[in-house]
């Protein structure tokens, strides 16, 4: 390893029972570039982990590896007891158990809001239409936009779209939700509504991994904060420890730049 820092270990987790996500010695390459270096991380049930770090540090790649949007090159990833291997069945199983919310919403523009939400339950979980729609309405109520059900994504504001995306992820009744910078593409006045939705989720006991730049959210909601730089986990800690008493020079530098 060229870097002086020893890769921090994020295996100790808060929450209850067995770790739901286990990442062991994971490497990821893009061609010759090593995007992730020997990542070790566990996430417990009902735990909220916030991943922060400068851009290009590999945060997004990390969570995209967990549901195989990117393929890891070495090490192991186990989600809810299922190992993420080349086995197409395992991949599908893991994707069923993990929801994902994207920076750019990625709602399906050709489908109405309700169809966006019911699509995966009906196609993947083979849920009857009526039941799926009932579920969708319930979720839309939960994210506080039930009146938009018949509209199309293009007719909604960014904040509303992202809340629909959260509802869409929830509709598969996942065990974990991965958030990939969910507020970065939003106008400032819409960030709050999305963060509030996420806080509600966390309070209800959803297991979440959030890649975000929202330090306030991290401090308030996170059980653990993971700081990444140059493809490595640099420091791990509770929000209080992390923001008030960071140990690593790189963490302090990063915090001084953004706070």
């Amino acid at each position: 390893m060229t870097d002086a820092t020893v890769n921090a270990d994020a295996t100790a987790f808060a929450g209850t029972g067995e770790a739901i996500i286990k990442v062991e010695n994971m490497d990821k390459f893009f061609g010759d570039f090593q995007a992730l270096k020997n990542i070790n991380m566990n996430v417990g049930h009902k735990e909220v982990v916030v991943v922060i770090g400068p851009s290009g540090s590999g945060k997004s790649t990390l969570i995209r590896c967990i549901n195989r949007l990117e393929q890891h090159d070495a090490g192991r990833i186990v989600v809810d007891g299922i190992e993420l291997s080349d086995d197409i069945r395992n991949i599908q199983e893991i994707r069923k158990e993990t929801g994902m919310v994207f920076q750019s919403f990625n709602l399906f523009p050709h489908l109405s809001i309700i169809d966006n939400i019911t699509l995966a339950p009906r196609q993947v979980r083979r849920m009857p239409k009526a039941e799926a729609e009932e579920l969708a309405m319930e979720l839309l109520t939960r994210v506080k936009i039930p009146e938009q059900a018949q509209k199309f994504p293009g007719q909604l504001s960014g904040g509303q779209q992202q809340r629909v995306a959260i509802a869409r992820a929830l509709a598969m009744r996942p065990k974990v939700i991965l958030f990939d910078e969910p507020t970065s593409a939003l106008d400032p006045e819409m960030i709050k509504e999305v963060l509030d939705t996420m806080k509600d989720l966390a309070n209800e006991g959803m297991t979440m991994i959030c890649v975000t730049h929202e330090m306030g959210f991290a401090r308030e909601v996170a059980d653990r904060v993971v700081f990444m730089a140059d493809g490595e986990v640099v420091e791990v800690g509770t929000p209080d420890h992390f923001f008030d008493n960071p140990q690593e020079a790189r963490t302090r530098l990063f915090l001084s730049q953004i706070l």
């Binding site: 195989r68 994207f102 990625n106 598969m172």
Partner: peptide
């Protein structure tokens, strides 16, 4: 069609054909 569309569908466990 943006790549995110496929990714969003993959993330919810849909099969390549679907």
């Amino acid at each position: 069609v943006p790549k995110g569309q496929t990714e969003a569908a993959q993330a919810s466990g849909m099969s390549p054909g679907a």
